[in-house]
Amino acid sequence: MLEVIALGAHDAERAQEGGADRLELVADMAADGLTPPAGVVREVLSATDLPVRVMLRDTAGFAPADLDALRRTAGELLAVGAREFVLGFLTPHGAVDAEACRAVLAELGGARWTFHRALDHAADPVAAWGVAAGLGCDTVLTAGHPGGVDQGLDVLHRLADLDGPPELLVGGGLREEHLPVLRAAGVRAFHVGGAVRPGGWAEPVDAAAVRRWSDLVNGLGAVTPAPA
């Protein structure tokens, strides 16, 4: 499964053209992805028939800036058609903030959701995985480390050994050369953003880049070796 980060309708169209299986819809990548406006959510849902997971995050950290406002936003996004979400909060001590998560989840009516890369910043990622699973997420997005997949491979191997659900979705500095190692460990779901934007975040998703990643994820292409 290949999930692609989208910032708007044009990204969604190009990601679908390239063979993406699902979208993560966010705003403000300078803050690593915040909640998009309801109007953008509506436009994206009209532009694609792919599943779209919408970010519920109102600050660059992993504690909500205004939990009540975030709950209201969740209801607004449901009203414009959002049916899948991405969220996850930590306490100041690096544990999953189950109370904050439950407060937002109570607004979502049982929608499918991903626990996002807050896990990378948890004091104990394996323990955090268990709490997230108990909250009902069907997916956990993680690089295994705040610095990205390169530094998180050991943790990712540990998580891949755990019985699911949830499904392990690997993303965050993911590169082609990571795929053979991760696939050998049993990972089957991958998440990309900058990797399918050759021109950077100021440019839209590139359909050809998505197609290459789709082929790689599905075992239909050869990985380009990392530079020596």
Rank of each mutant, 00 (worst) to 15 (best):
P36G: 02
A103N: 07
G144H: 02
M1E: 07
H145W: 03
G75V: 01
P198T: 12
V170W: 05
A103W: 02
P225S: 15
D32K: 00
D206V: 12
D97E: 07
R14W: 05
A20D: 08
P180N: 15
T224Q: 08
A133W: 00
V210E: 09
V196P: 13
G152S: 10
P198M: 06
F115I: 09
A202Y: 13
P92A: 05
R102M: 14
E43G: 00
F62K: 02
D206S: 08
A47S: 06
A30D: 11
L56W: 02
H10Q: 06
P198Q: 15
G110E: 12
D161Q: 08
A60K: 11
R72D: 13
R72G: 10
M1Q: 14
L179T: 05
V26P: 05
M29K: 10
R22P: 02
A103V: 04
H191T: 12
V223I: 07
P51Y: 00
L159Q: 05
A60R: 07
L90P: 03
R22W: 11
M1C: 13
L156I: 11
A38R: 12
G8N: 10
E24D: 09
A202W: 15
V126G: 00
G147D: 14
R102E: 10
E176N: 02
T139H: 09
S214M: 14
R211V: 14
V140K: 12
L45R: 06
V181K: 14
P204S: 04
G186I: 03
R188M: 07
P180Q: 02
E84A: 12
E99G: 12
E43D: 05
V210Y: 05
V104H: 04
R57W: 04
